[in-house]
Amino acid sequence: MVDKKYQVFVSSTFRDLVEERQDTIRNILDLNHIPAGMELFPAADVEQLTYIKKVIDECDYYLLIVGGRYGSLDAEGISFTEREYDYAVETGKFVIAFVHGEPGAISVQNSDVKPKLAASLNAFREKVMSGRLVRQWTNRQDLQLAVLKSLMHSFTAYPQTGWIRGNAAANQETLEQANAALQENVRLRAELAKMRAEPTERFPDIADLDDEVVIRYSYKYKSSSGIRYPDTNAKFTWRELFLGLASNLSTPRTEGIILDALTMATEQKGERTPFRINSTDRATIKIQFIALGLISARVSKTTDGKMAEFLTLTERGQQVYISNKVVRKDKD
């Protein structure tokens, strides 16, 4: 799997949370992801806020830390930190928020003592804590443990778009294309197997394996007057003929193998051993098993470079042969 890196925007007031921000950024780096924040350009005017919004747009997660200060205000009396938060929520960023659980215990130098600022901070706290799961913290150590756990959980449970190296992206794209081609190949093979498994749909009245057929052939007969080849015939089921044929088709063979199949069938039934099979009946046997989807025929080169037709078992043919030859448990 491609190593994906997430970009996390760290938002908070600046001067009162310098150490907490540094710890958070270090945790993000330790997890092999990318921190983003305005360490060098803290939000102080509209132009910088516009730039910050662009940075937030490029991030996968928005991480907010709320301490004891409301922060610098814009012309409308709203802190730039709250503006960042509102924009992250408005644009659908995944928000991870940490709010100080004991604001009254924060030192005066890190708190807003003016009533108006304190009221704005309380309102902002309530906004952040309503409608979402928020972790509270009381000291620097608690905060960093909470940050680490929350980030690891969010990366696993709520994965975002993330970033990957350009060469890794190319490899991933190739991998996805290969996988798509493989899935398509599997689908087509399944459809082909289904078509092969249901050949009788094309021939609704075709004889099945348990139907009988009369095969004409000649046999070798020795007498005092010499050797003769009289004609005869015998009745077989298509299954008897197929099992004799399939037992000799572990590798592709020419249609002469049909005579061997007939020989096996006659031996099992106690009939005369064939010397030559009737050419019409030989062709009928081949066509019947092709129509039943049990064998296939293809033209290929022989060992001496000539062209010949070779017969092979299909997947369905293999299944039928194995099903008929497998040894089963006694029912007693």
Results as ranks from 00 to 15, higher is better:
residue 127 K to E: 06
residue 168 A to S: 09
residue 158 Y to S: 06
residue 182 L to G: 10
residue 130 S to Q: 12
residue 124 F to P: 02
residue 136 Q to N: 15
residue 156 T to V: 01
residue 212 E to C: 06
residue 156 T to P: 03
residue 107 S to D: 10
residue 202 R to T: 14
residue 204 P to C: 14
residue 139 N to E: 09
residue 197 A to P: 01
residue 209 L to M: 05
residue 94 F to T: 15
residue 212 E to R: 06
residue 159 P to Q: 09
residue 141 Q to V: 04
residue 116 K to M: 15
residue 117 L to S: 13
residue 167 N to F: 11
residue 125 R to Q: 02
residue 154 S to Y: 01
residue 144 Q to Y: 06
residue 215 I to R: 01
residue 130 S to T: 15
residue 160 Q to H: 01
residue 106 I to D: 05
residue 130 S to C: 07
residue 164 I to D: 08
residue 116 K to L: 14
residue 120 S to E: 12
residue 95 V to P: 06
residue 115 P to I: 09
residue 114 K to E: 13
residue 128 V to R: 10
residue 171 N to G: 11
residue 115 P to T: 12
residue 163 W to C: 04
residue 215 I to G: 05
residue 106 I to K: 01
residue 163 W to E: 00
residue 134 V to L: 02
residue 195 M to Y: 08
residue 138 T to R: 15
residue 192 L to F: 08
residue 100 H to C: 08
residue 147 V to F: 01
residue 108 V to D: 04
residue 176 E to Y: 13
residue 157 A to N: 02
residue 180 A to E: 07
residue 143 L to K: 03
residue 127 K to M: 04
residue 130 S to G: 02
residue 207 A to L: 05
residue 200 T to S: 07
residue 192 L to A: 10
residue 100 H to F: 01
residue 181 A to H: 11
residue 185 N to M: 12
residue 189 R to P: 00
residue 99 V to A: 07
residue 168 A to R: 03
residue 203 F to Q: 12
residue 184 E to M: 08
residue 159 P to G: 06
residue 188 L to P: 03
residue 219 Y to S: 01
residue 157 A to D: 04
residue 173 E to M: 14
residue 161 T to Q: 11
residue 188 L to I: 12
residue 108 V to L: 03
residue 112 D to A: 06
residue 211 D to C: 12
residue 156 T to R: 07
residue 136 Q to P: 10
residue 105 A to Y: 07
residue 190 A to H: 00
residue 153 H to C: 00
residue 136 Q to Y: 12
residue 126 E to Q: 11
residue 184 E to H: 07
residue 103 P to Y: 07
residue 173 E to G: 12
residue 103 P to S: 13
residue 154 S to M: 07
residue 217 Y to G: 03
residue 117 L to I: 09
